[in-house]
Design a protein around this nucleic acid. Sequence first.
DNA 1: AAATACTTGACAGGATTAGTAGACTATTTT
DNA 2: AAAATAGTCTACTAATCCTGTCAAGTATTT
Lengths: 158, 158
Amino acid sequence: MLKLSTKGQYGVRAMFEIARGYNLGPITIKQISENQDVSVSYLEQILNQLRKAGIIKSVKGPGGGYVLARSPEEISIGAILRELEGPVAITSCLDPKEGCMRVEGCVTHLLWKSLGEKIETFLDNMTLDDLLKGSGFVEITRAGRRNKKGNDKAVAAG
Amino acid sequence: MLKLSTKGQYGVRAMFEIARGYNLGPITIKQISENQDVSVSYLEQILNQLRKAGIIKSVKGPGGGYVLARSPEEISIGAILRELEGPVAITSCLDPKEGCMRVEGCVTHLLWKSLGEKIETFLDNMTLDDLLKGSGFVEITRAGRRNKKGNDKAVAAG
DNA sequence: AAATACTTGACAGGATTAGTAGACTATTTT
DNA sequence: AAAATAGTCTACTAATCCTGTCAAGTATTT
């Protein structure tokens, strides 16, 4: 129960990839796709949505790709998911778009509302930076990140 | 995001109805259906599942219906939902039935696991009794509960 | 001008949800 | 025994949402 769709999951993983190289310039969709094992086409949809929301920025042309719009500690998982999946709404009753008839009779209203708030608090307090730290990842080089096309010597040598 | 299906929602509301009259004998599916505005056919499915799980008991024949198998403070919302919707599993990765490939690479694994645990704790600590108390419902009479067929005099008089 | 990379919208197969229908079994009352 | 009440079980379906794919286009850099 209470599953998150793959869109949200992939979105967070993609954001993680972008955050990894925060100070190394843009990362391409293709790179993200390869590192996180998600199709380029699907990522296009997801990243486009995040770009429109101002969470990431895109750079066109050769050498282009995606970059965080703010630093990793300023981007919460909650913000990412809210953009891709709408607000937490355990019941459609609690979705701001729909509203609740039977307001009086709905004994469980408070229950779901309360749970939803707990979840949002959790997600809003968790940032990409927390994710980076939790991943056991310390630092990477550009070569290290873009090492799929046989130029991984830099890594092996390092 | 993180919606609960109607099955789970209806299940909790049905359980609330049964809990309401805990010491007044069985309540019929029809009663629950009318009070909570859910079709009898759909409730049959839901209640049957809960009965098989030993959360409620059924009594056949006239005067029959459903009763809680334990007292309201012994039945958690978590137990009800887990029965109807399976365990909390934000990602299928965390579903005990499926298991996780890419265990190493999945940086978000810990995030979802941690959130899932928070949710389960919340749901397991919330009981039907809490719901009853929160509903502003103090006490009802049998006549009060079964008042659809014109015998609500007892309530008006009381 | 060519190469690279992002942008956008349409579309489709499959899974899940939400609910209906109908025939059956068990128990109590008359 | 028969009738009435009430739960049991299985199959089926319509609709919705998820999970992507595809293709044609626009923008930027070299």
